[in-house]
Computed example of a mutant assay.
Amino acid sequence: MNLFLHGLTPTIYLGDTIYEPERGERYDVILTNPPFGTKGANQVPDRDDFTIDTSNKQLNFVQHCMNILKPGGRAAMVLPDNCLFEDKAGEVFEILMQDCNLHTILRLPRGTFTPYSQGVKANVVFFQKGLPTEHVWIYDARANVPGVTKKSRPLTREHFREFEAAYGADPAGRSPRTDAGPEGRFRRFHISEIKERGYKLDITWLKDESLEDADELPEPDALASEAIAELEAAVDGLREVLAMVETNGNSEL
C-alpha cells in the first residue's frame, strides 16, 4: 500500500516467504522486517538454501534475505532484540558475517512501534553482501532516551538525526566514523569480539538511567506487551529443544 501511495508500481506475490522455495530473483536493496503471525510456527523449513535448521521464523527470514541479495546488494532489517541472541542466532549471524559485511546495528528507542507493538524492543541491522564482516558498529538510540508514546512523545525524524550523522553518507557504511567511547552512543566492535560472544549481537554498554526514574518507566500495557514477547520467545526456545529431543529419540529407535 505504501508503494502505491508513493507512486510506485510494485510486483506482489501471494505465497509464503519462508516455507516455500524462493523464486530465484535477486535484489539490489532489501528494506524489511520478519513476517508476523503464527502460521508455520515450530516448523523447520524444508529449504536447501538455508544453512542453519531452525524453527525460528525471524532467523529463517534473515537467511532468506541474505540468500536473495545480489552480490554487492544492501539490506536493512528490523529485528526484535531476542532475535539477536536467542535460539540459533549465533549460528545464523556467523554465516551472515562470513558472506556479508554486517556493518551497523541501530538500537531503536523504546516504544518505536507504538501503538501497534509498543512493548517490542527492536533494532535495525544493516549489511551488504559480498565481503566478510570486520567490524560491527552499534548505535544505541535507546538508553537514557524517553520512550516513545502515541501523544506526548511521538516518534519523529529528530530521534535519528544523530544516528544519521554518525552513520555517514555512504549507504554501505564505509564513511569515516568515530568510536564515541564507553560513555558515547556509537561504538565499534571487532569481529574477534563478536566471535568471543558466539556471534550473538545483544551488546550494550550504557547504563539506562531512565529505567530508574519512575516517571520514565514504560506504561503498564507496554510492560505487559514486553513480558508477553519475552515469554513467547522463551516458549519458542523450549519448543526448539523439544523438537530436537524428539528427533534424536526417533533416530535411536
Rank of each mutant, 00 (worst) to 15 (best):
P45D: 09
P45C: 08
P45T: 07
D46E: 15
R47G: 01
D48S: 15
D49K: 06
F50V: 00
F50W: 05
T51G: 10
D53S: 14
K57M: 13
K57R: 15
Q58P: 02
Q58S: 14
L59D: 10
L59H: 12
N60E: 09
N60Y: 06
Q63T: 06
Q63C: 07
I68C: 01
L69G: 03
G73K: 02
G73W: 08
R74S: 11
A76T: 13
M77C: 00
M77S: 00
V78P: 04
L79H: 00
P80T: 08
N82T: 15
C83M: 07
C83W: 04
L84R: 02
L84D: 04
A89H: 09
G90Q: 11
G90I: 10
E91N: 04
V92F: 00
F93C: 09
F93K: 02
E94W: 07
E94G: 01
E94D: 07
D99N: 12
L102C: 13
H103G: 06
H103Y: 15
T104L: 06
T104H: 03
I105M: 15
I105K: 05
L106F: 04
L108G: 00
L108S: 02
P109G: 06
G111Q: 01
F113C: 05
F113E: 05
T114Y: 02
T114P: 02
P115I: 08
P115E: 01
Y116Q: 00
Y116R: 06
S117N: 12
S117G: 00
Q118I: 09
G119E: 02
G119F: 15
G119S: 12
V120S: 14
V120C: 12
K121E: 00
K121A: 11
F126P: 08
F126W: 07
F126T: 08
F127H: 03
K129T: 10
K129M: 06
G130R: 00
L131Y: 13
L131D: 13
T133S: 09
T133V: 08
T133P: 04
E134R: 13
H135K: 12
H135S: 09
V136A: 04
W137L: 03
I138T: 09
Y139W: 15
Y139L: 04
D140V: 00
A141P: 12
A141K: 01
A141L: 01
A141M: 09
R142I: 01
A143K: 08
A143E: 12
N144H: 06
V145D: 00
V145H: 03
P146S: 11
P146C: 10
P146G: 11
G147E: 14
G147L: 14
V148R: 07
T149A: 05
T149S: 15
T149G: 02
K150F: 15
K150R: 15
R153M: 05
R153T: 04
P154T: 11
L155Q: 05
T156E: 11
E158R: 13
H159V: 10
F160L: 08
F160K: 06
E162K: 11
F163D: 05
F163N: 03
E164L: 13
A165E: 14
A166H: 14
A166T: 03
Y167L: 14
Y167D: 01
Y167V: 03
Y167H: 13
G168H: 14
A169C: 01
D170V: 01
D170Y: 02
G173E: 09
